[in-house]
Every structure is written in structure tokens, then in C-alpha cells.
């Protein structure tokens, strides 16, 4: 039984079919790549997985559960975490605060009456867990700076950390290396590998950087203009002629 099973997902926007019968499966604890040229529909697919967009057709099953009627915030609680291509951080908060909010959301222990009597602040245990993740991602030195003052690379790590706090069994990463330089990218790759080893989760990775993908994943799906044109092990897919034409052609 796959962890994630997207079956024939279709999404149309006025005029264009952004996703056309896309079927993707991800097993537990596996890192899978999703690649494709600009506008292929990768981000749209993520939005459908998380319920930010409603697919026009198809079915998404997660952990044996049909997600069709599950709202976004519940999907997060079920164990789907994500980062954003266009970074979406909480302005005015520090990395530590980002993680603490996510930790509180995961526990769901916040209640208005607790706030009212002054018991709404993070507990020692929550602080500890946030620090563990900050340390894992190497964010401790910047933990108490406002995110607006941090670099994009750090911002992406904060997004990863925020998603990790919800203890996802599936982590969706949308182009985590875009906008990063070489050093930052390889640092990110090794951090992700370490995160995956330590926290045990499946990762679905959208990326343009081919080396980055190869260094991390075992299987790849290729999207082009909303249709799945190839799927298989990394080695097979990158050898595939159609893939090279559609996607790598411009890069090789």
C-alpha cells in the first residue's frame, strides 16, 4: 500500500489543462523526484495534494484515506508537510517562532481559554523540540533574528523546519534550491539527506537542478504540459529519449 496515491488527477484553469490525468505514487520513507520544464504543472500538483486547489477529476489517497473532502489544514495534520516555491514565511517572526507555531499547530493544544489565563506561551517541552529541529538544520545561530533579515537560503531551511515540526510522513519540497548558489545548494542537499535519515519520512521533490535531483532521489516522475511523460528509476528516466527532448534538451 503506497503512502500517497494520486490517481488520474486533472486540473483545468480557464483555457489550459494544467494537469491531465496525472498518476503518481510515493512509498513510505522514499525520496521521489517530480521534474518538468517551467509551467509543466508541478506546483499545481502540489496545490492539489494539499487541497489549496480542487482538482477537476481524479482521486488522491493518503495513508489509505481518500482526501477529496479533507480541507488543507486537516491534510497537514494527517501528515503532509510542504515548502513553497515562492517562499511563504511569517513576516515579523523569528525562525524559532516559526517552529513554535508549527509545533503548537501539530499538537492542537492551543485554546482561547488557555490564552486568556496566560497559559498560551510555548511550553518548555515545545521549546526543546523546536531547538532540536533548529540544531538539525543548523539554524541555531540565526534562531532569534526576524526572518526578513535572513537570506533566501536560510529562509528555505526555515520553511523545511516549519514543515518538519508537523511530523510529516510525506514532505513536499517545491524547488528548494531555486535562487540558491552552488554552496548553498550542496549544503541544502546534505541537510535534506540527514533530515531524511534522522526523521524517517517520504519526500516528494520538485526540482530543476538535475544534479540535485540525482544526488537525492531513487525514482523520478516527469511532467510536461500537464501530462506524465515518463516515470521510473532515476537512471532509466534520465536515459529516456523523450525526457531528454522535453526537459533536458535545453540543458545538455
Amino acid at each position: 500500500m503506497s503512502l500517497l496515491l494520486a490517481d488520474a488527477v486533472t486540473k483545468r484553469f480557464a483555457g489550459i489543462t494544467a494537469l491531465d490525468n496525472v498518476s503518481i505514487d510515493v512509498e513510505a520513507d522514499e525520496i521521489v523526484g517530480l521534474i518538468g520544464p517551467n509551467g509543466a504543472g508541478k506546483t499545481t500538483f502540489f496545490n492539489c495534494l494539499l487541497g489549496l486547489l480542487k482538482p477537476d477529476g481524479g482521486e488522491i489517497t493518503f495513508d489509505g484515506r481518500d482526501l477529496t473532502r479533507v480541507p488543507t489544514h486537516r491534510r497537514a495534520r494527517l501528515g503532509i508537510g510542504r515548502t513553497f516555491q515562492r517562499i511563504e514565511l511569517f513576516t515579523g517572526m523569528t525562525p524559532r517562532e516559526h517552529l513554535l507555531v508549527a509545533e503548537r499547530a501539530r499538537r492542537g493544544t492551543g485554546a482561547l481559554w488557555k490564552d486568556v489565563i496566560g497559559r498560551g506561551r510555548p511550553t518548555a517541552e515545545e521549546q526543546e523540540r523546536a531547538e532540536a529541529t533548529l540544531t538539525l538544520l543548523g539554524l541555531m545561530p540565526v534562531a532569534d533574528r526576524k526572518v526578513e533579515a535572513l537570506s533566501l537560503g536560510i529562509g528555505r531551511l526555515v520553511e523545511v523546519g516549519r514543515a518538519l515540526m508537523t511530523e510529516p510522513s510525506l514532505l513536499l519540497l517545491d524547488e528548494p534550491s531555486s535562487g540558491l548558489d552552488r554552496n548553498e545548494t550542496s549544503l541544502l542537499a546534505s541537510t535534506l539527506r540527514e533530515v531524511q535519515r534522522e526523521r524517517k519520512m517520504a519526500i516528494l521533490l520538485v526540482e530543476h537542478d538535475v544534479d540535485f535531483v540525482r544526488s537525492l532521489v531513487s525514482r523520478v516522475f516527469v511532467l510536461d504540459f500537464g501530462t506524465l511523460i515518463a516515470a521510473g528509476t532515476t537512471h532509466d528516466v534520465f536515459a529516456d529519449a523523450a525526457v531528454r527532448r522535453a526537459y533536458l534538451g535545453e540543458m545538455v
Partner: peptide
Amino acid sequence: SGTTGRYLDALRSSEVAASSIGIN
């Protein structure tokens, strides 16, 4: 400074990010 305030701060910055970590 408690849960509600933090959730609202998060929502004001980015509703999608807030709901992606399970905030309703």
C-alpha cells in the same frame, strides 16, 4: 502572545503557509 495571537499573525502573513502546518 498566546496561541490565538500567533495563529492570527501567521494567517496575516500567509494563509496558505499557515494552513499548510495545520492551522484552521
